[in-house]
C-alpha cells in the first residue's frame, strides 16, 4: 500500500492526485479549508504523507508547516510514515467486546506473531485496535482500507489472512456498495 519515497528525489503528484487537489481548492471556500481533502489525495496515492507532501500542502494552501503537522497529527487516519501492506484494524469497543472482540484479537496476535499495535517484521501486516467502526450490531469486525469485514470468527479471520497472503483481498460484507 505505502510507497517509500527517496527523501531527496523531487515528487510530483500523479495526475489523479493533482486533479483532486485542484478540485478541492476550487470547491472549498478558503484554501486552508481544503486541507483534509488534499491530505487524503496525497495519502491515497502514497499511503502516507511524506515530507514532500507536506511541502506541497504548504505551497498550495498557503498555510504554515506547523498547521499542516497540527492537522496531520490530530487525526488517527492520517499517516506520516509508510505503513504495512495490510493494516488490520479490529474494533475493541463495547459492542464488539461483548460479541467476542477480545478472543478474536488474541487469535490474530497468535497467528501474526505480533501484539496489538505492532507490525510483522516483514512489513506485510500491522494489527491495530480501533474504536467503534459503526458496525456494532454486526461485530466483531475488522477494517482493511475501504473494506469492512463483519461477524468475524477466528476461522473467518484465518481465511482472510490466507487470502491476503496469496495477494487477494477477499470480498467484504460492505463491498456491495462498491459494486453497484
Amino acid at each position: 500500500m505505502s510507497k517509500q519515497l527517496d527523501a531527496k528525489a523531487p515528487w510530483t503528484p500523479a495526475t489523479g492526485t493533482r486533479a483532486r487537489i485542484d478540485e478541492a481548492l476550487r470547491r472549498y471556500p478558503t484554501k486552508a479549508s481544503a486541507i483534509m481533502p488534499c491530505i487524503w489525495a496525497i495519502q491515497d496515492e502514497l499511503g502516507h504523507v511524506p515530507p514532500a507532501g507536506v511541502d506541497l500542502l504548504v505551497a498550495e494552501l498557503g498555510v504554515t508547516r506547523a498547521r499542516v503537522h497540527e492537522v496531520l497529527s490530530f487525526y488517527t487516519m492520517f499517516r506520516t510514515e509508510p505503513q504495512a501492506d495490510h493494516v488490520l484494524q479490529v474494533c475493541h469497543n463495547i459492542s464488539c467486546h461483548i460479541l467476542g472482540a477480545r478472543p478474536l484479537i488474541a487469535h490474530l496476535e497468535k497467528r501474526l506473531g505480533v501484539r496489538l499495535g505492532e507490525t510483522t517484521p516483514d512489513g506485510r501486516f500491522a494489527l491495530e485496535g480501533v474504536e467503534c467502526l459503526g458496525a456494532c450490531g454486526h461485530g466483531p469486525c475488522l477494517q482493511l482500507g475501504k473494506h469492512l469485514y463483519e461477524h468475524l470468527t477466528p476461522e473467518k479471520a484465518d481465511a482472510l489472512l490466507d487470502s491476503l497472503r496469496r495477494g487477494q483481498v477477499p470480498r467484504a460484507d460492505t463491498d456491495r456498495e462498491l459494486e453497484d
Binding site: 459492542s95 474504536e131 458496525a135 456494532c136 456498495e177
Partner: peptide, 15 residues
C-alpha cells in the same frame, strides 16, 4: 460522523 459506540443508524440511512 457517527462515532458514538453502539450507534450505526446513519450508516444505514446513507447506505
Amino acid at each position: 460522523d457517527e462515532s458514538e459506540p453502539g450507534t450505526f443508524k446513519d450508516r444505514y440511512l446513507l447506505d
